[in-house]
Write a protein that binds this DNA or RNA. Structure first.
Lengths: 348, 348
DNA sequence: ACCAAAACCGTAAACGTTTACGGAAACCTA
DNA sequence: TAGGTTTCCGTAAACGTTTACGGTTTTGGT
């Protein structure tokens, strides 16, 4: 492993000049610059990151802190892959690398984060699995670590955030369902300490009102995530005096369980219960086909990366940083799971 | 952010002593050690990793290089989460951290790896998505980076490897199927440049022979991964002169498409075609229930971590390193998808 | 040909650690 | 108490890089 010293000796040149040549600094002639770059390529020189990090306090590495929920199950599963790709497509243009940090399920998230930022390994961080109240945000802010959150929180440190447009999803779903005559539309809510649930609930109430539907508290149903949750939910939706005729959800695993829960009850999705919510590639495998929303995760990743760059002092040269806070749009994949119109015929 | 210098000044002590106290080195009295540790905790001192890395060339960080296949889709999806957790449960005991490296889909894997090891950020690496011939292995070996592969390869640098027991899976599946009268057992093979496919194929041939079944080349079927592949496969299996009566697979997504492919043809899994292969939690959602094998991923992670430690000079004090090369066992989850006995009745 | 300015380059300090080395103090033994 | 041993601690060098500073050479204008 060759260092800048050897490279300099090899060219009979000082290490200062070599460094300047490599880093596109001025005060070095075009000729020697070429020479240096050539030799660097030939000898396979790569700057040692430790030395650089120590000297200028910057590592060119961004950390993406993945949330692991209480069951030790990564939130999102196959969700993040495209997001990463999108981020990297932007970051690599600026010489930045991206790594994923998996908090051990055995360790307290705050302790882990503390340790991580104290190490000073990462130039910036992305926080996911944002809680409604999230002390991690204030911790990062206090230590003035550049960061972006994937998700919104009541804890606000003025940081940029990106999020998926769950409001839009709920609003549009309710409109679709209302138009087809649904009056009893249920909402499957995620873990209560995630802000997501609150956002959805609020949109749900508001949107019901706008469609002249009455809000019924027991139709806003807290739901576990995971494979068995869907079956449970199926029971809770239809085995009651006033069954729901439709359900909206935000967990892409849920419909799998839901479908089978209905099947066990002898019911058919889209006929006995309208189903609509967030999906992935996998969702296309359901029959009857699931009406669901997909997000452009690659684009989301790109946007996160851009927001990150804005937070890093290094990239704010001249231009005043604008605070990126936005939700990314979704596209509807129409299926049969909410196709049926159940409006009572006016002429009997 | 406080450094060792400040810590030393605060105690009117030299930085050398402070460093020794913190690192459990001898040559420091019990009294001052306590003092130092106390002050460090009070002032929230955490050693700067850059300085340490530069001085002693070790970062306490392990990199897990995740494979991204040609479609830019992470191989494994929700597969790796438990593996990570298992690794961390071991690594954290030795003060090591784990990060996941996602190779950008736009970059050549070799170039990425080259860059990564040149940076000298990681004390050891884990390689996944191992190819039958894998130049990455020789690259790491040449640069004498401690590493472990998750998967076997023909390219052998004497490194430790861990793998799932696909041989066992295939062997046991064939036994089960043969016992129930199946004569035409198909095998869904993954991407040809993965070693996995060759291993499976070899076991398949061998195992057929041992069960007095004839090997029929057109039943060893190359299969894409992804959601549509299952549907295609369904066609190819049954719409032919001599349909297969059973199929074995190693891709946990496949059965979802397979089930629907069969449904479209008016056929029922377990009745018209026996299905058995690798599964995950999600697999339990299929109906009729899927007979599948699950691996203890947490344990696999632990084992990988142990193998890693063996490769790191730091942890080889005294004991001679043993080369860990093993497959982890699986457990069978019995379902209905291969339950039916199709042995022709001898008495009509 | 002379001087000022510009262009280029070398020297050395600095980043925060760890650790080899030597010295001072304390302890033990005779 | 003298000498030797142990225990403890401070000093300074080293890791590989960037960068401020000053010096030398070249350039360009008169």
């Amino acid at each position: 492993m060759i260092g800048i010293r050897e490279l300099a000796d090899h060219l009979n040149i000082s290490i200062g000049t070599v460094s300047r040549a490599l880093n596109n600094k001025p005060d070095v002639s075009a000729k020697t610059r070429e020479l240096v770059l050539g030799a660097a390529a030939d000898l396979g020189y790569v700057p040692n990151q430790a030395g650089r990090l120590l000297r200028q306090g910057t590592s060119n590495v961004i950390g993406f802190i993945l949330a692991t929920d209480s069951e030790g199950m990564m939130q999102g599963d196959l969700f993040f892959v495209r997001v990463f790709d999108g981020m990297q497509s932007v970051l690599s243009k600026h010489g930045l690398d991206l790594v994923a940090l998996l908090a051990p399920s055995s360790e307290d998230p705050m302790a882990y984060l503390q340790r991580t930022i104290a190490r000073q390994f990462y130039d910036a961080l992305v926080l996911s699995g944002i809680k409604r109240q999230d002390p991690r945000i204030t911790l990062l802010s206090k230590n003035s670590v550049p960061f972006v959150t994937l998700g919104r929180s009541l804890t606000d440190a003025g940081q940029p955030w990106l999020d998926l447009d769950f409001e839009g999803m709920v609003r549009q779903s309710i409109q679709r369902l209302a138009r087809k005559g649904h009056r009893r539309i249920a909402l499957a809510l995620p873990n209560d300490d995630l802000n997501l649930g609150h956002i959805m609930l609020e949109t749900y109430r508001d949107s019901l009102r706008k469609n002249n539907l009455t809000f019924c508290p027991d139709l806003a149903m807290p739901t576990l995530s995971g494979d068995t949750a869907g079956r449970d939910l199926a029971m809770r939706l239809v085995q009651r005096d006033d069954p729901a005729t439709a359900v909206i959800f935000s967990d892409h695993i849920l419909p799998f369980g839901l479908y089978h829960g209905l099947a066990d009850l002898g019911l058919t999705p889209g006929k006995d219960l309208a189903i609509i919510g967030i999906g992935t590639r996998l969702s296309s495998l359901l029959r009857p086909s699931l009406t669901h929303y997909r997000f452009n995760l690659f684009e989301l990743g790109q946007r996160i990366a851009e927001a990150l760059l804005e937070t890093m002092p290094r990239f704010q040269a001249g231009t005043v940083a604008k605070l990126i806070r936005e939700t990314v749009a979704f596209t509807l994949v129409e299926g049969d799971s909410d196709a049926q119109d159940i409006t009572p015929k006016s002429s009997t």
